[in-house]
Design a protein around this nucleic acid. Structure first.
Lengths: 127, 127
DNA sequence: TTCGTTAGATGCAACTTGCACCTAGGTGTC
DNA sequence: GACACCTAGGTGCAAGTTGCATCTAACGAA
């Protein structure tokens, strides 16, 4: 589960899925739009993540130079990459729900410290 | 934002808030119950996180040896720690929502690839 | 005295990250 | 031509983080 921290990986996989194919420099612009945290994504991290994804077989790439400007490394999802995105979505879905639940339980404990025990008992632990 | 990765920090802060005070070994048992990911928490990570929290002024500790067995380092939240927990809850709340939204948008793109452009346009980007 | 449990901690290799920097193709302009 | 700037993809390195193994030590039970 590389790069869980900033969630660069799933967003890259999704962007590639949506666009069909793209390259690092272009993806770096769209990452901000879909970033899951406020933390900025370093270009270095982006390029390294793409190479890592390729090394793991989730994307493949080819050079594209017919457009003016320096050559681009065009990335696209592999079949494994689609499955990996699917797995990521399951993980993020689960995390999202656990997180929301945690926030609920913790907020109750903060606002009404004298009644939190009962509330935790009613709502149960995290999923 | 240390230890965002496993979310050890906010859960520790919450557990201390709820119990009033506790120590590493005891906390390690409850961490699993409230863990936000399936990844297991190393005891080493737990102890190091507690020391880091103390270094940053979010918790304070004192030795407790009146109980049989080796002395425990009893931790409790500081006022700064309560504020920090509050900030964490805001961050997690935001992340949780962004994540849920991302999963929604991405799932639509996966299931109905031919219509995803319109759906993305309707639902907008992430929060 | 030896073993198991509780409790806290460290050493180290491997990995990740952020920052600075580099290479290189192309365009505009003086 | 000389230069600045934009696009595009990277690398080097110091600093930080993590996981695993290991260590110390107090106490109770056999």
């Amino acid at each position: 589960m590389g790069n869980l921290y900033r969630f660069v990986e799933p967003v890259l996989l999704f962007l590639l899925k949506r666009k069909g194919h793209s390259y690092g420099y272009e993806l770096s612009g769209q990452l901000t739009e879909f970033a899951l945290t406020d933390a900025e994504i370093e270009a270095a991290a982006l390029y390294r993540t793409l190479r890592q994804l390729e090394k793991n077989g989730f994307v493949r790439s080819e050079w594209d130079s017919g457009h003016g400007g320096p050559a681009r490394r065009l990335y696209m999802l592999t079949e494994q990459g689609e499955e990996h995105l699917d797995e990521w979505l399951a993980v993020l879905d689960h995390m999202s729900k656990s997180m929301a639940h945690f926030v609920d339980v913790a907020r109750v404990a903060l606002v009404e410290p004298e009644t939190h025990e009962e509330v935790v008992a009613v709502t149960g632990g995290l999923g």
